[in-house]
Simulated assay, not measured.
Amino acid sequence: MSRRGLTGLETAIILVAFVITSSAFAFVVLNMGQQSADQVQSVISSSMDDSSAALLMDTNIIGVFSNVTGVQSTICLTKATFYVRLSQGHTPIDMDDSKIVITYTNPRCHTVIYDANTNVTSITVVAGNGDTMLEVGEKFKVVIDFTAIDKTTVDPAQADMNNVYTHPYEELRIEIQPSSGAKLAIERLIPQVESTVMGF
């Protein structure tokens, strides 16, 4: 009789230990699942913020050209002006030169034209409250003076400034990369140029 009681007690102890171990394991699994779900939610939220912070061009590029009386291959794009606004994401973007980087690429070279160390590009508020934050309903003017580019600092370095300029029938690419959010990539093929100032 005592032997049966002892066996039953041992079985009960083993069963309780098994239940406790199973509960602890289930808690660990559920906790890891919750952490994974939180990480996925964080990634999705960050991606949504990035996509909603994208910039949009509000106009075509207005170009200023030199040597317009010569042949097309000698005509140079010396200045470009365009306007930007927020996309439908409506996430404000800081347009200060310490928060944003603008690059310029033509068929021969590539360079940074807007950051804390360059004076090639200027960004001014056209419609807004006067600060550097581009917000809903605001518009900023971007002016790029290609004559201010140092031909020795482009990649690769150029011996002739004409190689830094973009000419008719060539493509140029301007990228605006905010500190957060999607970048704005502007690609244009310059058409035949007949006047000093022309949109394209």
Rank of each mutant, 00 (worst) to 15 (best):
Q88G: 08
A26R: 08
D58A: 15
M57D: 02
S47T: 12
D97R: 04
V112W: 02
I14G: 01
S98E: 08
T78I: 14
S47A: 10
L77F: 01
K99S: 15
Y114K: 07
P107S: 09
I93S: 08
S46C: 03
N106L: 05
C76I: 00
T91V: 15
G70A: 10
L86H: 04
K79I: 04
S47I: 06
V28F: 06
C109R: 09
N31T: 13
T21E: 04
D50T: 04
N106I: 01
F65V: 08
I62S: 15
D58H: 10
V71Q: 05
F65A: 02
G8S: 13
A17T: 08
F27K: 04
N67S: 03
A24L: 14
T118Y: 05
I75P: 04
A24E: 07
D115K: 06
F25G: 06
S51L: 10
L56F: 10
Q72C: 04
L77V: 12
A17H: 05
V16R: 12
D96S: 15
R85F: 13
H110W: 13
T105V: 13
S42N: 07
Q41M: 08
T74V: 15
S73L: 08
G63Q: 03
D38S: 06
L86E: 03
T103E: 06
N119L: 00
T59D: 15
N106A: 04
S66N: 07
T74G: 04
G63K: 02
M95W: 07
V40L: 13
V16T: 12
A26D: 14
L9F: 07
